[in-house]
Simulated scan of single mutants.
Amino acid sequence: MSVRDVAIAASVSVGTVSNVLNRPDKVAPATVARVLAAIDELGFVRNDAARQLRAGRSRSIGLVVQDVGNPFFAEIARGAEDRAAEDGMAVLLGNADQQSRRETSYLDLFREQRVNGVLVSPTGEDLAPMERLRDAGIPVVLVDREAPDAEFSWVAVDDVEGGHLAATHLLERGRRRLAFIAGPRSIRQVGDRLEGARRAVAAQAGATLEVVEMAALSVLEGRRAGAQLVARAPRERPDAVFAANDLLAVGALQAFALIGDVRVPEDVALIGYDDIDFAAAAVVPLSSIRQPARLIGSSAVDVLLKNIADPHGSHDRGIRFQPELVVRASTAGGDTITPAAFAAETAS
């Protein structure tokens, strides 16, 4: 069925059908009702590809995330989708699966589809694929990644501060042998969280921090890391673990509970990052560093829409949210050092 068929069935012009589809406020309500009835009766579906060719853009926004299996990125996508829907736009989701090649493939596809703009959480440091989009006239906003030196807008959380919060909390609980379960160092967020943890440990006399680097930010890799720690003699294990995200923390908790006899938090205090729903629902509820995932997604769309409406305008280059410490049972046991005592010990 074509627009012409709808026009004949509704006894109106083709232009009137076009206005009903694109600018219904310009058509009399009775005529809109008649055209919509004809559309329903005929089963008409608009040819959006043809409309895109005429307009030069689609009604879509592209979003590429590092790992759609991570609930944190799923929440970002929900926030972006809800905000985009308010402006009558759809979000096309691409899962890079922590692979730069897949990320680039999605970005190229979105360019071919003439999307209005793209949100992307980069898998690495190479921003050349985003630069190609920008040079083609497609606005790009980086999500969950700061880029103060690049010509991109961005929305992110201060991950250095988040890492500092996590390590400081463990130190305040009296822990001194810390381990950081890291994902790939190529992921900027992992490096930033580690930097923050190192700053906190460096300020505390007698505290140490080892890095257990894993291949991915997943539950399975967290379980492998936990198994490595369980295999050590008790006195050689850390007394606290900071995982780069909650998936790693959940995996480590599984290893502690199922493989060995490590008690959380009595033997090892454990904290994650992101505060996904699984954190609170774990067999030992996990302490975590909370990020406002939905707000990040919706704010990124806000920034993108401003860039679409006024590509050469002076917009905020970056929005930085502050992380929040959420304390649960996985760090609540053991000796507690009051903030005043911790400050005094650190100063000495």
Rank of each mutant, 00 (worst) to 15 (best):
S11P: 03
S13G: 15
G15H: 10
S18G: 03
V27N: 14
A33L: 14
V35A: 09
V45D: 08
A50V: 10
A50G: 15
L53A: 07
G62Y: 11
D67Q: 08
V68T: 13
F72P: 07
E86P: 04
A90N: 11
L92Q: 09
R101W: 01
R102S: 06
R102W: 09
D108M: 09
V115K: 07
G117N: 05
V118W: 01
T123H: 05
E131C: 00
R145K: 10
P148A: 04
E151N: 14
A156R: 07
D159G: 09
G162I: 10
A166C: 07
T168Q: 11
A179C: 14
R185V: 00
G191C: 08
A197V: 08
V201I: 10
R224I: 02
A225D: 07
A233F: 00
R237K: 04
V241A: 05
A244I: 01
N245H: 02
L247K: 02
V250P: 05
A252Y: 01
A255Y: 08
A257E: 10
G260W: 01
V264K: 04
L270A: 03
I271P: 06
F278E: 12
V283H: 05
V284G: 08
N307L: 13
P323C: 06
V326Q: 07
A332D: 11
F342K: 07
A343C: 04
